[in-house]
Simulated assay, not measured.
Amino acid sequence: MQSSDDTDPRLMLLSPGDSVYVLRDQIATGETIRLQGRAVRVGQALGLGHKIARVVHAPGDKVVKYGAPLGTVTAPIAVGEHVHTHNLTSDYTVSHTLDPARGQAEGG
């Protein structure tokens, strides 16, 4: 687990090659945080354990967390943007959601 002096201390980098940071605390809507020396405005409130992009991701890119691919990007993701089911599909579940009803509707 790493953190950089020029990155908000509420963000942790779990592995040097990760493309996302994991939140270790909450960030409020509209708050400006530091990411690798750059000021980034957060567009929505985010809670503990959520991911934000460390690098720009294009559709088809892999999101890497703990040094392993977590999923595939479905929509462009800017640095500092929330990375979740609205722009990422899991490489480990049938669909990009864990909602049982939706998973069944998509071929479960």
Rank of each mutant, 00 (worst) to 15 (best):
M1W: 12
M1F: 12
Q2T: 14
S3D: 11
S3P: 10
D5T: 11
T7P: 07
T7Y: 07
T7H: 00
P9C: 07
P9G: 08
P9D: 13
L11M: 01
L13Y: 02
L14E: 07
S15N: 11
S15P: 04
S15E: 09
P16C: 02
G17R: 13
S19P: 10
S19V: 04
Y21T: 10
Y21F: 09
Y21P: 08
V22F: 03
D25I: 06
D25P: 03
I27K: 01
T29W: 09
G30L: 05
E31Q: 03
E31M: 13
T32F: 03
I33H: 02
I33Y: 02
I33W: 04
L35P: 08
L35K: 06
L35W: 10
R38C: 14
A39L: 15
A39D: 15
G43V: 11
A45W: 09
L46K: 08
G47R: 13
G49E: 03
G49F: 07
I52S: 04
I52A: 08
R54T: 05
V55W: 12
V55F: 04
A58G: 09
G60E: 09
D61E: 09
K65E: 07
K65N: 07
K65C: 02
Y66V: 06
G67H: 05
G67M: 04
G67W: 08
L70W: 13
L70M: 11
L70G: 01
G71Q: 02
T72V: 15
T74M: 13
T74P: 05
A75M: 05
P76A: 12
I77C: 01
A78M: 04
V79D: 05
G80C: 00
E81C: 09
E81L: 05
H82E: 02
V83K: 04
H84I: 02
T85D: 02
T89Y: 01
T89L: 08
T89K: 15
S90N: 02
D91L: 15
Y92I: 03
T93E: 10
T93R: 05
D99V: 06
R102W: 15
G103P: 08
E106L: 13
G107T: 10
G107D: 08
